[in-house]
Design a protein around this nucleic acid. Structure first.
Lengths: 345, 345
DNA sequence: GTGAAAGCGCTAACAT
DNA sequence: ATGTTAGCGCTTTCAC
């Protein structure tokens, strides 16, 4: 607060202090239009000495331009999303655009609310995780007249643009890899969140992959709440107690997979010969475990980068030549928790 | 985009569609003032059928109220901060306030820029990690005339309000605990980021605690880049190779501590008798390791909650009775990586 | 290179 | 309970 009780300085204050019109002050502060070096210096000196901070609210209203990109994801406290955000930031940091984050906690109604709030700020673009949204959310995004990129998943119809991997394929490919190596009594261990559509699609793809080899899941184990090493241990313990002849545990993420691995090693189970294991995500925080867990890279950083490039290209440069759909390849990361394929006779 | 080429609907559109004045439409949409049930229904029906989304930019400018709270932290991809954000969201979700996040990557100039950007949106409050800021940042926050809460750390002078733990004390208390249990050849293993002031303060407190027992650090090991299990393993390996008679490894966070623990267990080192270990943070993702790592809870969730309560109480309810400084107690979490204290003779 | 006028979409304050 | 007027702080447009 300044001495005269004013809470915020305006362009007018800078104008008066520098003896330059508001309009020219505005030009200097935005590096827009031609201003003489002398005037520019006067203005900058005044702005700095007063401690002027522009009011973006007013600027956005007047220019009808808001350099914000809404980024809507299920959760921040999940090792998966920070990397996507990093990819997005890396690209947007090179532009005038700024990401603004919102979390849905895997609840469609929360997602609807978050999208509504975001759109009410009139952002320049939207990046949303997943392809599943309720009707209201879908309608808002369709009517928003801004680039909307749905990310992470490509198994379904997108509203506008789409960048991600096929989780169905990821699950199927993992099943093929596992069966090729001779595993036969295979369990799936994952979360039971009905709105985690990507985990669901991986499971569906996985089951399809098994059935191609004439197999079906030998056991499933579900948990709720956040994932942790302990959850993975508990699920592995439970599954192996219930079905002692299981020879493979497929986990829906790396953290619980790592927990399962620790359990097996401690229980003296021969990994990967007696029991093999795999996770999903390619979380390199966990690099350093006694054994590398076989997993599949979800291309999270790259998804963020590509999505941000589409938004920036369309919103800023008016480009219309950008791909509307980018399907990335989830790469298998072969750890030591998978035994070699048997020699074919 | 609607048929007539308009990109966004305005109050005027809803007013015309419902035959009610703009002002009354505004009242309905904000639940403000008395409106008859009949009028309210007409307006809501019109707004819904048109798909009207209010323009918060215009609303904020007119009302001089922006229900945003800027939250500025070093990094999103760090297990430490998501929990703080969860605490903040939990409180703000019960109010009209919305958090907006910014990351500084431990760079003071980036912090300054992020604070400037945040303030240019005229938020209702600011929550900033740490007490160390450059002069420009400090000046902006002092002049902002909004509640500013510095969090995580209480070792220093705050601008306005302050919620956190004393990292100096946390380090000192850990040193006391370790020396009490008879460990004597003690190493510190942590990051070498010069701008991670909290890690630095823990180290200083730790050294002070050691010196009280007539000891000094027997070794230090620093790493750069993100922390991971592997980094912890490597540092433990290096430290023990260089100083084979070390009997304690104090890590600056739980993740590298867990890596160190895995190394020791695999190397057949008797933990906690031959070598003890401790980390910092209380990250419960890691619960499930072969042995519980001794650590100290940094009260992250509670810090977020208290900080948000101060902002909400002051910004929304005009309360002036809220504490300006809250120092929380980092609790020792005793795992099995600490041996019992020797009987005193 | 600089300035004056108009207006962005909403809400506060004041009618009625 | 509803309507009218003015104006938030900036940028656009046009004039000089």
């Amino acid at each position: 607060m300044t001495e005269d009780g004013k809470v915020h300085l305006t362009l007018r204050d800078v104008s008066e202090a520098s003896g330059v019109s508001e309009m020219t002050v505005s030009r200097v502060l935005r590096n827009k239009g031609d201003v003489s070096a002398r005037t520019r210096e006067k203005v900058l000196a005044a702005a700095r000495s007063l401690g002027y901070v522009p009011n973006k609210i007013a600027g956005a209203l007047a220019s009808n331009r808001v350099n914000l990109v809404g980024v809507i994801i299920p959760s921040l406290s999940n090792m998966v999303f920070p990397e996507v955000l990093t990819g997005i930031s890396r690209v947007l940091d090179e532009t005038v655009l700024q990401p603004v984050f919102g979390a849905t906690h895997y609840a469609p109604e929360t997602e609807e609310k978050v999208i509504y709030e975001m759109l009410s700020w009139r952002p320049s673009g939207l990046i949303v995780a997943g392809l599943e949204h309720n009707d209201a959310a879908r309608a808002m995004m369709r009517n928003a007249a801004i680039p909307v990129v749905e990310i992470m998943d490509v198994d379904g119809a997108a509203i506008d643009a789409n960048v991600g991997i096929s989780h169905h394929r990821a699950g199927r490919d993992m099943a093929r890899e596992i069966t090729r190596r001779g595993y036969r009594r295979i369990a799936f261990l994952g979360s039971n969140m009905p709105d985690d559509h990507r985990a669901r699609k991986r499971l569906e793809g996985f089951e399809q992959g098994l059935s191609e080899a004439g197999l079906a899941l030998a056991a499933t184990e579900f948990y709720s709440g956040g994932s942790s090493l302990r959850k993975g241990r508990e699920m592995a313990t439970a599954a192996l107690a219930r079905e002692p002849d299981l020879d493979f545990l497929y986990f829906s993420n790396d953290l619980i997979g790592a927990g399962g691995l620790l359990h097996c090693l401690e229980a003296g189970i021969d990994v990967p010969n007696r029991v093999g294991l795999a996770g999903f995500n390619g979380v390199d925080l966990l690099d350093g475990l006694p054994m590398h867990l076989t997993t599949m890279d979800a291309c999270r950083m790259e998804i963020g980068v590509k999505a941000a490039e589409i938004v920036a290209g369309r919103a800023l440069d008016g480009r219309t030549d950008l791909p509307a759909r980018i399907e990335l390849d989830p790469k298998l990361i072969r750890g030591e928790t998978l035994r070699p394929a048997p020699d074919r006779a």
